[in-house]
Amino acid sequence: MIFSYNKAHVGDVLMVIVTDSKDQKLSFERRGKVARVFLEDSNETVAWNIFDASSLITLNGAGQVFLTDDDVVRLNQELEAEGFSERLVNDNAPKFVVGEIVEMTAHPDSDHLNICQVKIVEDKTVQIVAGAPNAKLGLKTIVALPGAMMPNGSLIFPGKLRGEDSFGMMCSPRELALPNAPQKRGIIELDETSVVGEAFDSQKHWIQG
């Protein structure tokens, strides 16, 4: 789940994105401070909007926000009080981490995409389809994992590119809105001493800034 809050532009509304709607037709129901957004065809919940959110929990920042477990308990109490049976699930794991390309093959249906196996912790790799011209074996870069919100507001969900599964995105400095980012294609290239799985820290990982 992705929690998003921007009081200046949206108002005192906590937006909780559960899954990608894939541009399907949506409907919603509201009870008190809670609105459930769902797919019309399947009734699957894709998002929640919680109004007057700061009366329930303390919220700071704008864009993607991370809640405490106690915050989520309080929000679930509100959902239950309004008669909703579903519950929010907290996930505070870092969504932007150091990854390393450990395998790379050309996409069979593209002349510029590669299918990369990217190590995101020592014992886990994910498949990411990428078109970065500087992608290569052994390169360490910053990976946006499913559940991430990019600086421009776009969301990262598992998906497919030209029929191949992709579970995240390797990021360019421009996509991460880093200072003095080159305005060209290419994922960020980290020093080989960068630690796989470490959470992204612009002060540490963007020395050019």
Rank of each mutant, 00 (worst) to 15 (best):
K184E: 14
L190H: 07
P179Y: 01
E175Q: 13
M169V: 03
S166C: 14
P173V: 00
K136V: 15
L139E: 06
E192D: 14
A135Q: 13
M170N: 01
L139M: 14
A177T: 00
P179H: 02
G153H: 01
A177M: 05
P158I: 13
V143T: 02
Q183D: 15
A144P: 01
E192C: 05
E189Y: 08
T193H: 11
K184P: 00
L139G: 06
T141Q: 05
K184D: 06
L161I: 15
G197A: 03
V195S: 03
V196G: 03
L145E: 04
E189C: 09
P173N: 05
N180A: 11
M169D: 01
M150E: 05
L178F: 07
P158N: 14
L176R: 00
S154N: 12
E189W: 10
L190D: 09
D165A: 15
R174I: 08
I188V: 08
I156H: 05
D165P: 15
E164N: 10
S194I: 06
L155V: 10
G159Q: 03
G168E: 02
E189N: 11
P173E: 04
K140C: 06
M150W: 01
G138I: 15
P146I: 01
G163R: 11
R185D: 14
F157T: 10
G138C: 13
L145Q: 10
L145V: 02
R174E: 15
E192H: 14
L190Q: 05
M149G: 01
